[in-house]
């Protein structure tokens, strides 16, 4: 969170368990094993980047964590609670926030209405038919802060359909942050952004609150390695490496996977190191 900027007076985080735990998750499509026994924890305030080339299983893993896909085996735990069989909206109410790879917004709603909708999504009054002036004031205040936080000040009344691609990405992050989630999942947030917008997004992600665990699925290594505290790399559904950004950058297998020299790197590397547990 930016210093002095808060949109929520409370935090729900009182658990000792990690905000997000992924336990031996596997998912197949027919004969293709898209995700194969992936396990990791994400601690409060930690930023974890999930990297991998196209078809590595990043999106499948992301969708399994969100609840869009059910895993064939394994468990997803949010704050220690098994949410594997819960629908997306139940996971969101338990502290999960997400963005979409292709901006997914409500074309007819303004920026402020998007944030207000997201702010109320985790509250019990989300379908209230009464207008309480105190609640409206609080939502308006929080909306203003969040709109400023994600850099959309002055655009509150603009309908989403009139926003640029970069602004839509900012709005996506704002909506994910609105209900003060414990975990936010960002699906390629830098996709299609200009260099200026990318820098702005990187700053925003680096300034996220210390209590929010962030999982970043990203194709762009520059953004991921700048933002992340820890990185895991997937290939063909399996985790092939994990560690700090500097370790990942110097990992020959990761370089080989990204540069296409796979066979060469594998032959140079002992088989025992091909999987690295990130839970350690």
């Amino acid at each position: 969170m930016l210093p002095g900027v808060t949109w929520s007076e409370h935090t729900r985080r009182t658990h000792q368990d990690p905000p997000l735990r992924v336990e031996r998750v596997s998912r197949s499509f027919g004969g293709l094993r898209a995700v194969d026994g992936i396990s990791f924890d994400v601690e409060a305030g930690e930023r974890l980047a999930v990297l991998g080339p196209n078809g590595a299983g990043k999106s499948t893993l992301f969708n399994v964590i969100c609840g869009d896909l059910l895993p064939d085996s394994g468990r997803i735990l949010l704050n220690g609670e098994d949410v594997t069989s819960l629908a997306l909206h139940h996971r969101v109410r338990r502290g999960l926030g997400r963005t979409y790879q292709t901006s997914s917004v409500f074309g007819g709603l303004s920026v402020a209405e998007h944030i207000a909708l997201a702010l109320r999504g985790s509250s019990s009054g989300r379908l209230s038919l009464s207008m309480r002036s105190r609640e409206r004031r609080e939502v308006a205040r929080s909306t203003e802060r969040l709109v400023t936080l994600v850099g959309l000040e002055g655009r509150s009344a603009t309908p989403a359909r009139e926003l640029s691609h970069g602004e839509l990405r900012q709005l996506e992050v704002g909506m994910a942050l609105a209900p003060s989630p414990d975990v936010i999942l960002l699906d390629e947030p830098a996709a299609g952004l200009s260099a200026h917008e990318r820098t702005r997004l990187t700053e925003l992600l680096l300034n996220l609150s210390d209590i929010v665990a962030t999982v970043l699925v990203e194709h762009d290594m520059d953004v991921a390695l700048t933002v992340a505290d820890r990185v895991i790399v997937l290939e063909s559904g399996s985790m092939i490496a994990g560690g700090s950004p500097s370790q990942i950058e110097s990992d020959p297998l990761v370089r080989a996977v990204y540069l296409g020299e796979q066979h060469k790197a594998r032959s140079e590397r002992p088989p025992a190191r091909r999987r690295t547990s990130t839970d350690e």
């Binding site: 997400r98 917004v105 409500f106 007819g108 909708l117």
Partner: peptide
């Protein structure tokens, strides 16, 4: 009306 799937991703049933 605008995006039911996205609405669900904000915590709404």
């Amino acid at each position: 009306r605008d995006n039911p799937k996205r609405l669900q991703a904000l915590g709404y049933s």
